[in-house]
Amino acid sequence: MNGVLAIALRTLLTLLLTSFLTTLTSGKAVASVKEGEPAPTFVMVDENNKEVDLKTLIDKPTIIYFTHNACHYCTQIIALLKRAETKFGSKNLRIIGINIMAKDGKLVKAYKKELGFVFPMFAGNRQDVLKAYKINYVPVLVFIDAQGVVKSIVGHYIHEKELHDHITDISIK
């Protein structure tokens, strides 16, 4: 009986150790995006292939905007975001673009140049990012408050007034 107990304890310890080591080697699992919870963040590459930790950018009310080159409506939303940045001011609002077609900075650079905007955009053709934000389609806008908490997610074309309402909502202190 003691022998059986010893084997059971050894097995349990092995399982616990394996689980601990797996956590250490794989890092913390990234949670999926959810309203009311902190926004998932990643280290991503910009148009110059420079690595940037998104966590460092979410220091004020922030919109993360997912788009790609084949989406007609998405281009129109870029125009609305440019206007919102002017209206609300870059001190009060951060806009982060993520192009889900881009694997590196080259496509991002061309996209920014063509559409003429200056807010940061990152290469988002990555399974971890797409899975965490559940991006099966575009456009998707994620509205995040200054504390880094997701307030709302909009997964369709947005009108300017609705966009401004969401920005006002994340700006409330």
Partner: peptide, 8 residues
């Protein structure tokens, strides 16, 4: 690089 639909 793919052109942008609706823009290009």
């Amino acid at each position: 690089i793919p052109l942008i639909y609706g823009h290009n």
